[in-house]
Every structure is written in structure tokens, then in C-alpha cells.
């Protein structure tokens, strides 16, 4: 028995009135229960893609199905399954969070009594209950983002799409949001995430697609894609000062970042023990080490040919 994908996109094209071709025949499939990352540089077409899936943007051609339901022919049924957390804050600043959530549920046909129950549940989960009856414009940036996640969860969507939900929030709040998203995914909701923080995608997502200039240039399991990286980079903190001349080690690149830090780039197949042994022979004592770049970031930069992160 074949599983119906949570999201299936076929040959999706979008040409704006300005003549800009934002999507050039994108095809993509996301399986139910997945935690999926959609990455790409600015202007790659991510927001257009999400806009079409959520019916905010009209496609020029192609098909989109949410759990097998075509959004072109059965938009209302498809939208019932979808939750969207957009990039820009898009709730009424003059309303109270509790009312924002209740009204949103009402748009989906959730009766007022049930909406009020769910609103309390979601606001508590987002740690916003204390702000439930204050005007939304007084919320901090992180609170506004959590409110948008809570709002999307009001309709219990089977597919949740988040467009850079953690942009501009501090690490503590970001981790709180990660916890919520993991809970949501663990409860069975398929999650699609775009983010500027590639370590976020690497730690949370099982599959990913990279889009660049309106085309999918890479798509598959995170582990498979990361294994394509044949080189890893590390920064080594050295006890004392580095010698004037660094040892030559076959197959690796070494150079001094400063007098106490060594920049190391090595093939993934090589063992660190071999390198540490050679450094030790040269009188270089390694006190600590850290990954030079995020692995996904490295892959992303190589594929898109850009230094600009997602």
C-alpha cells in the first residue's frame, strides 16, 4: 500500500506580473510525519513556494496536493489540513492574543466554546497565557513568533509549514520553539521548515530540499546529503604558542588562525588520531577543538555557490 504524501508538488511554475520567474517547474514530495527543511538563499523561491501551497500566491502552472487533495480544485478541503506560520507577523496588533486565536479557529469553523478551550491550551503551551488578554502589539518579538505558532496549532493541522519561525529571536526562545515543534511533530503533524539557521535544520529535520533560483538542486535525507561532504573543518586551540613552521601532514590543510589557534581541514575518511599523533610529534599540544563550520552550512554554500546563508 502506497502512502499519500503530506505534500506533493508537481512541475510548479510561477511567473510574476513583473516577468520574474520565481519557480521553474519545482517538484517535491514530503511524506507524512516528516520534519522537512526547505532551504535556499534569499530570493530562491521559498516564500513563493510556501505562498502557493497556502493559497496566498496563484501558481502559473503545476499542481499542489495536500494529503492527496488538490489545492486548485478542492482548496477548502486542502486548507483545512494546513497550518501556516508566515515569515512576517500578520495578526492584528490591536487585538488580544486570546481573541486572535479564537477568531482564527472561527475562520476554520471551530465553534466558539471549543476555540476558547483550545486557545487557553495553546497559549499555555507557548508560555503566553499571562499575556492572553493584553494587546498583541505589546508582545516582544519572540512572543509574537510563538503566538503565530500557537495560532497555527489552533486548527490541529496535519501539515504545518513554518517560514523562518525563529528569525531574530534569542537562543533561549528559539530552543523553546524547537521544543514545541518537536512535540508537534512527535504527535504526528508533518512539519516543513525554512530557516536561516542551518544548525537548526540539521538538528531538527530528517529530510531536506535546497532550492536555488527557482529550482530544486538537492533533495533527500539529511544524513545522505551530509555524507556527500568529503571534507570537514576544525579549529584547534593550542597550549602555548604555535611553532613558526607547521608540520606537513599528507592530505590535510593546516594553517595558523593566530598564534594559539590552528585551522584544520581534513578528508572525512581520515582519523583524527593520526593528525593528533603528528601534531604531538611536532610539539603542538591541542587543548580543545571545535567544528569550524556547520556541516549543513558547508553543503549549502557548496551547492548554491553563495556565501549567503539560507
Amino acid at each position: 500500500m502506497t502512502t499519500v504524501p503530506a505534500l506533493e508538488i508537481r512541475e510548479l511554475r510561477k511567473v510574476y506580473a513583473t516577468g520574474v520567474e520565481a519557480l521553474k517547474g519545482v517538484s517535491l514530495s514530503v511524506q507524512p510525519g516528516d520534519f522537512f527543511a526547505l532551504l535556499g538563499p534569499n530570493g530562491a523561491g521559498k516564500s513563493t513556494l510556501i505562498g502557493i501551497v497556502s493559497s496566498l500566491v496563484n501558481a502559473s502552472s503545476g499542481a499542489v496536493k495536500v494529503f492527496g487533495i488538490d489545492i486548485g480544485t478542492q482548496r477548502e478541503a486542502a486548507m483545512r489540513l494546513l497550518g501556516l506560520v508566515p515569515q512576517e507577523v500578520n495578526f492584528n496588533f490591536f487585538e488580544k492574543p486570546f481573541d486572535i486565536l479564537c477568531n482564527y479557529a472561527g475562520f476554520y469553523g471551530v465553534a466558539r466554546t471549543e476555540a476558547r478551550r483550545r486557545a487557553e491550551e495553546e497559549l499555555r503551551r507557548a508560555q503566553l497565557w499571562e499575556k492572553a488578554f493584553t494587546t498583541a502589539r505589546t508582545l516582544s518579538g519572540g512572543m509574537k513568533r510563538r503566538l503565530m505558532i500557537a495560532r497555527a496549532m489552533m486548527t490541529k493541522p496535519r501539515l504545518l509549514i513554518l517560514d523562518e519561525p525563529t528569525a531574530g529571536v534569542d537562543i533561549e526562545i528559539r530552543r523553546g520553539m524547537w521544543r514545541i515543534l518537536r512535540e508537534v511533530n512527535a504527535a504526528g503533524t508533518t512539519v516543513i521548515l525554512t530557516t536561516h539557521y542551518l544548525e537548526e535544520a540539521e538538528s531538527m529535520c530528517r529530510n531536506l530540499a535546497i532550492i536555488d533560483r527557482g529550482e530544486i538542486i538537492e533533495n533527500g535525507p539529511m544524513k545522505t546529503l551530509l555524507s556527500k561532504l568529503d571534507v570537514e573543518g576544525f579549529l584547534l586551540d593550542i597550549d602555548g604558542e604555535l611553532p613558526a613552521e607547521l608540520p606537513h601532514i599528507e592530505g590535510i590543510a593546516l594553517h595558523a588562525e593566530d598564534r594559539h589557534t590552528l585551522d584544520l581541514e581534513m578528508p572525512r575518511a581520515m582519523h583524527l588520531n593520526q593528525i593528533f599523533a603528528r601534531l604531538d610529534e611536532a610539539g603542538i599540544r591541542v587543548r580543545s577543538m571545535r567544528t569550524k563550520t556547520n556541516r549543513l552550512e558547508e553543503l549549502f554554500v557548496r551547492l548554491t555557490g553563495s556565501k549567503e546563508a539560507a
Partner: peptide, 17 residues
Amino acid sequence: GAKFGRHIEEMLVSPMP
């Protein structure tokens, strides 16, 4: 105002006819 503040999107993404 809903268009300007973008909260019209709450309705446009909903299943409302």
C-alpha cells in the same frame, strides 16, 4: 487595514469560501 496589516492573510489561508 487588514490588507495593510497583512492579517487579511489569516482569512485568505483559511478554508472559508
